[in-house]
Every structure is written in structure tokens, then in C-alpha cells.
Simulated assay, not measured.
Amino acid sequence: MDTLIFATNNQHKVDEIRLVLGSRFNIITLKESGIDIDIPEPHDTLEANATEKSSVIHKLTGKNCFSEDTGLEVAALNGAPGVKSARYAGESRSFDANIDKLLKEMEQNSSREARFRTIISLILNNKEFIFEGICPGTITMERKGSNGFGYDPVFIPDGSTRTFAEMTMEEKSVFSHRKKAMEKLIAFLSDV
């Protein structure tokens, strides 16, 4: 079984990715690998931030690793919050404050189109590979559901009538942007 370090401190993301990967790969979190750092995300694109995170961990450990960066991109807000999704309402990274700000900015918008986009940066044998997953959907007028994290209570994926927060993790994975990116990563690793 191949071991990969997942460059994140977000346990929700770890749980989602372990669900997708099953037992095919041994995913080691930063904490499990004894790394206690918060990797900065200083860049203007999801791709650059994902690369930053995987590069930092690879330089620290010399081991195969991957990272991901995900953003909610709302058409009516010119792609915002995008790369700033986790800190949309400020550095505190408050899910509730981020949702409050998003709903306030969307109050007068009839166009509710949005998408979640995930970029995975894999560093394998000292080379980087990039994978993308997209989940199109719409922003609701108010919060619905209590599962998940982030913007899940206000995002309905195309093909559903429920928000991510109204779904179990298994139901969410049917639509998940993160799963789509992970499936590309798995397909790639299966061919290596």
C-alpha cells in the first residue's frame, strides 16, 4: 500500500478523501506525520496555493505528498470568494461569518450560479502533477442542513434539490468536486 502525506490540518477534508480512497492508499495527515505547521496560502490562484502546500511538505520530508486547495466561485460575484473562500469574512476562518457575508452580497442577485473547484497538487518522485475537480450548482437564499462544513449549508449541487449540508458524506461524494479531483489522482496513481 502506497503512503502519501496529505498536506492539510483540516480533518473534514481528510475524512472525505479517506472515504474516496478506501484502502487503496495509506493517507498520513500532517499531524500523524509529526508536522505541526500552518502552511500559508499567499497566492491568487487555487493552483499556486496547492503547489505551495505540497512543495513545503515535500521540502520538509522528501516524501511523496499531495495537497489541495478548494474555492467556491460564484458567477454573480465575478468568481468570488474563490481563492479567499476560507477567509472571505476575515482571517478568523469562520464558516458562519463567511456564509453571512456571501448571503448578504447575494441578496439582490437573481443569478445564483456557483461552483466548487478543487485543485490537487501531487508531488510524486520529485515531480508535480495537477488534478482538477468541479461541482457546478447554485447558492440558496438561506442555510439548510447541518452536515458538512464551509459553504455546504448554502450550496445545492446540480442534479440535486438538497444542499451539501443536508446530505450524508456518502451522498455528498456523488457530486463532490474533491472526489472528482481525487478520482483523477487515483487513476493517475494506478497507472504509475
Score class of each variant (00 low, 15 high):
Arg24Asn: 14
Gly22His: 02
Lys59Leu: 12
Ile99Trp: 01
Lys53Pro: 06
Thr29Asn: 07
Pro81Tyr: 03
Ser54Val: 12
Gly71Val: 02
Asp96Trp: 09
Leu21Thr: 14
Gly22Cys: 07
Asp44Glu: 15
Glu132Cys: 14
Met106Ile: 06
Ala80Pro: 06
Lys84Met: 14
Cys65Trp: 00
Thr61Asp: 08
Glu107Asp: 10
Leu122Phe: 05
Ser85Asp: 01
Phe25Ala: 09
Ala86Lys: 11
Val20Trp: 06
Glu68Asp: 15
Val56Leu: 10
Ser55Cys: 12
Gly62Ala: 09
Asp100Cys: 06
Asn78Trp: 08
Ser121Phe: 00
Lys84Tyr: 15
Lys53Gly: 03
Glu113Tyr: 09
Phe129Pro: 05
Ala48Ser: 11
Tyr88Ile: 02
Lys59Met: 13
Lys59Arg: 15
Thr8His: 01
Ser94Val: 04
Gly34Asn: 08
Leu60Arg: 10
His58Ile: 06
Ser94Asp: 11
Arg115Leu: 13
Glu132Gly: 07
Ile35Met: 07
Asp15Gln: 13
Ala114Asn: 00
His58Met: 05
Ile57Asn: 03
Glu32Gln: 12
Asp36His: 15
Gly34Ala: 09
Asn125Lys: 13
Ala75Arg: 11
Leu72Ser: 01
Glu68Trp: 05
Thr29Pro: 01
Ile39Trp: 04
Ile120Leu: 15
Ser111Thr: 13
Asn78Phe: 11
Ile130Gly: 01
Asn125Ser: 14
Ile28Lys: 13
Asn109Cys: 15
Ile57Met: 07
Glu132Arg: 14
Gly71Ser: 04
Lys59Glu: 12
Glu128Ser: 15
Leu103Arg: 00
Gly82Ala: 01
Glu107Leu: 11
Gly34Cys: 08
Ile37Met: 10
Asp100Asn: 10
Asn10Ser: 07
Phe129Ala: 09
Thr70Arg: 01
Val14Met: 08
Asp38Thr: 13
Gly22Arg: 05
Lys31Gln: 14
Glu91Asn: 12
Phe131Glu: 00
Glu107Ser: 11
Ser85Ala: 09
Glu128Asn: 15
Phe6Ile: 02
Ile37Arg: 11
Asn125Ala: 14
Leu19Gly: 05
Lys31Pro: 04
Leu30Glu: 00
Gly90Thr: 04
Glu128Pro: 09
Ala89Phe: 05
Ile120Thr: 06
Thr8Glu: 01
Val14Tyr: 05
Phe66Thr: 00
His12Ser: 07
Leu46Arg: 01
Lys63Trp: 07
Arg117Gly: 05
Asn109Gly: 09
His43Met: 10
Ala89Gln: 02
Leu21Met: 15
Asp96Ala: 13
Gly71Cys: 04
Glu73Met: 10
Ile57His: 03
Asp38Asn: 14
Glu73Ser: 10
Ala7Ile: 02
Ser67Phe: 01
Phe95Ile: 04
Gly22Tyr: 03
Ile17Cys: 08
Asp36Phe: 15
Thr61Arg: 08
Asp100Arg: 02
Ile27Lys: 04
Glu68Asn: 13
Lys13Pro: 03
Ala75Pro: 03
Leu124His: 12
